[in-house]
Amino acid sequence: MTACNQAEVLAGAIALGEATDAERQTYRGHVATCSACLRANGGEHEIERTMARVGQARDGETWDPDLTALVREKMNGRKRLLRAGLTVAGACIAISLAFNLAMVAGLGRIAPSFADPLVLNYDGQRIVLEHRSTAALPQATAAPRMVVEHNVVTLTRQPAAVGAVGPRAPQATIPSVQQAPRTVASTASTLAAAQKTFDDTPIWRRGSGGGGGSIAVTQTTTSVSQTIPRLDRQTDSIVVAPAYTIRAPEPIGGETALTPQPAPIAYAQNASGTSVFEVQIDERGVPTKCAITKSSGFLSLDDAVCRAAMKARYSPKLVNGRPVPGSYTDAFTFRSSGNGEGL
């Protein structure tokens, strides 16, 4: 601290009447040599006169407000506010508890359920809005809740084919098919009639349970074996026709290329059943028409099957290597795991 700063402290002590004689002597000695401090702070008498001015202003004040009532009112207001806050908080807690108890006890619904249809009267017409799907439905691909079994119906109708075994034809059918060229003989009209007979024969069989695919194959093969002796009996005197090959149309990429994806409502309905479809395929392998030959009982499942069938591409039917229009029949069995209830 410099001497001038020390002089300020001493001047303050003199102003407050706290300076001792030694401090006053020190201040007098400093201002005697420091004109700047003398000019700024003044001498002892000047300091005391200035402070006396402050005393005069203090003693001249007469303002005497009464804060007692104001402060008391604020204190009571604060208490009232606190009490009101506690009351409101208690009321809120009580209402919340009562609401929860009512909900637990099942004393009526507070709001209409989403499952309730909304009935509107618009211009004299009664409109019923049903909640069919919700945003809360899970993504079918993320967590599938429906088991889809792919029943493959293999077409092995080859009455006079040599080496016309289909891609999925079982080995058991080969001997009977290979015997056909030696025994089956027909004119063109006879062959056409025979072809029509095969077309009228059911070409698919739906399996029951998970092993449906193999059962369908066996039954289809059996029908072919029963047909060939009948032709043999009729064609003992018929000239053997030139052999021809037929290859049935099939989806490019195999049977797994068809992936039906039912709408979310199917999960909510726990839909299950088997949809059998037949899709018409032109000579380019493009599906032109899809028909449900046996419905699963759920429009959503049938629609999903036909959409998947029309979305796929097929290898066309080949007769002697020449593409011709044909049809492809397949079946899908949907089984719901039951987890979709309450969606």
Partner: peptide, 18 residues
């Protein structure tokens, strides 16, 4: 000491006003 110094400096302002 800081209080005394502040009082001194306040007194200077008061003296200039007077």
């Amino acid at each position: 000491d800081a209080v005394r110094q502040r009082v001194c400096r306040a007194m200077r302002t008061l003296r200039s006003v007077m």
